[in-house]
């Protein structure tokens, strides 16, 4: 649709699509930029059973209450960011803000669309963990951080949310749109000793 023609992801100027390969070969690290999506920052009383129940009814699955975990529904997923804060991620057109606005009406909450404020970089492959270890102070060993985990952390100087998706391991790295290029450069540089392949997001 015309809309997608006008909209640009943060890394669009890098022309990643043209550089993407289907055959990463020996590359230890696969990098991609995820397409635009709805990212809703949801705030509300995480200590209120009633709020959590209404939220569950609204989105169709429970918001995570265990710190640094992710819950998932059919069309969206929710990352725990704090006791009263979540990040809901869904494909464009889901209209999460509107849905939450209707479902949570009358309660103390804020649902703020931040999909345009972010870039999501996909990082996977056998050396993905080594790449992250160069800038992330968290322990990403499978024993302490596996699929379904997320964390707000720093990659070098960059404030980031990281979430592990699978055992490949594959990570999603959420950063502010304005620092996306710096982040990409950092990760690509850190991965260069393992071989980096750009793949479709």
């Amino acid at each position: 649709m015309a809309d997608s023609y006008f909209r640009q992801t943060a890394l669009a100027p890098l022309g990643l699509a043209a550089k993407a390969t289907d055959a990463p070969g020996e590359a230890g690290v696969l990098m991609s930029e995820h397409p635009l999506a709805e990212h809703v920052n949801l705030r509300g009383d995480g200590a209120s059973v009633e709020f959590l129940q209404v939220a569950r009814t609204t989105i169709g699955y429970a918001l995570p209450t265990e710190p640094n975990t992710v819950t998932e529904g059919t069309n969206s997923r929710a990352l725990w960011l704090g006791p009263h804060e979540w990040l809901l991620v869904a494909p464009l057109g889901t209209a999460l803000v509107a849905t939450l606005g209707r479902g949570l009406a009358g309660r103390a909450f804020a649902a703020t669309e931040l999909g345009d404020a972010r870039a999501v970089i996909g990082l996977s492959g056998p050396n993905a963990r080594d790449v992250l270890a160069k800038s992330c102070p968290l322990d990403l060993n499978p024993k302490s951080f596996g699929p379904g985990r997320c964390a707000q952390t720093k990659l070098s100087r960059i404030a980031a949310i990281i979430a592990q998706r699978d055992d490949a391991p594959s990570y999603e790295i959420y950063v502010a749109r304005s620092v996306a290029r710096y982040t990409w450069r950092w990760l690509e540089d850190a991965g260069s000793e393992y071989g980096v392949a750009i793949v479709a997001g």
């Binding site: 640009q8 100027p13 070098s156 304005s178 620092v179 290029r181 950092w186």
Partner: peptide, 18 residues
């Protein structure tokens, strides 16, 4: 470490930077 040259500090660019 790698905090040298272009990576010595982060840079923020606007959506219209290009």
């Amino acid at each position: 470490g790698r905090d040298v040259g272009e990576m010595s500090d982060l840079t923020r660019t606007t959506p219209i930077h290009e």
